[in-house]
């Protein structure tokens, strides 16, 4: 079965990073041979002074293919990981949604988008999780990480939100590489301009210093841009990607 695992609020201003906690959970799943995990993504939620996030209000999500019998032990192990490894003072939350058991995908996606627009309460998150039949639990502090954990899953299900964790290593910065070569790395599924044009396999891209991919159209996408009149595409900078 395919599952989505969302976590949020595992760090504090002084220590921890939710991406690192997610990677720890992935390691546990794979070491115990419960299944194979795919692409860890970061999803941006609403920035607002009245929300008690640490510094940037983002949540993390990954998917995994597992046997049904592994679902309960996996949830237990992920919860244990959050309780053990989250920073003191954090408010960690965990969401695990099994695709085949999910009652209403559209509601979950709508909730994900809603967390980008308005302040959501913990009660709203629990109520929706109950209706949809997804696991949602808190593991320390005020537990408000459940709001983002559920949102991370909903936004991942859109197939059009979030940046993949980590940087790509293709060639040295400044190198010009063609799209075929990029796709052959198996780290990227599509190369696309910020305007939505999908590059063909013969086109060339100049690599920047920090290569990151985003989730667009369900594909791990390397975004590029080109100044007017220029022939060569360039990979996007972090600033280009801030709204993904």
């Amino acid at each position: 079965m395919k599952i989505y695992v969302g976590i949020d609020d595992t760090d504090s201003i002084e220590q921890g990073a939710t991406g690192e906690t997610a990677k720890q959970i992935i390691r546990i799943i794979e070491e115990r041979r419960w299944g194979n995990c795919q692409g860890l993504t970061r999803h941006q939620l609403l920035l607002h002074p009245d929300i008690a996030y640490t510094s940037h209000n983002s949540s993390m999500c990954f998917t995994a293919e597992i046997e049904t019998a592994s679902l309960e032990p996996l949830i237990e192990a992920a919860a244990g990981c959050l309780e053990r490894d989250s920073a003191p003072g954090s408010d960690p939350g965990l969401c695990v949604a099994a695709e085949e058991q999910l009652r209403d995908v559209e509601s979950l996606i709508a909730y994900g988008y809603e967390t980008k627009k308005r302040i959501i309460t913990k009660g709203e998150a629990y109520e929706l999780a109950g209706k949809l039949g997804v696991h949602l639990s808190e593991h320390g502090g005020a537990g408000i990480g459940v709001i983002g954990a559920l949102a991370g899953v909903g936004l991942r299900m859109t197939n059009n939100d979030g940046r993949f964790q980590g940087r790509l290593e293709l060639k040295v910065p400044g190198a010009i590489i063609n799209v075929t070569e990029i796709l052959c790395s198996n780290l990227v599924e599509r190369v696309q301009s910020v305007d939505g044009y999908v590059l063909n396999k013969n086109e060339e891209v100049r690599l920047g210093h920090k290569l990151k991919t985003v989730l667009l159209g369900g594909k791990r996408t390397l975004l590029v841009y080109r100044r007017e009149g220029a022939l060569v595409w360039k990979t996007c900078t972090n600033a280009h990607l801030e709204h993904y």
Partner: peptide, 17 residues
């Protein structure tokens, strides 16, 4: 954390914890 960086130059308030 690397996932939260905004500026290209590493040492920038935009990249500070």
């Amino acid at each position: 954390d690397e996932d939260e960086l905004l500026a290209e130059e590493e040492r920038s308030c935009y990249n500070c914890r």
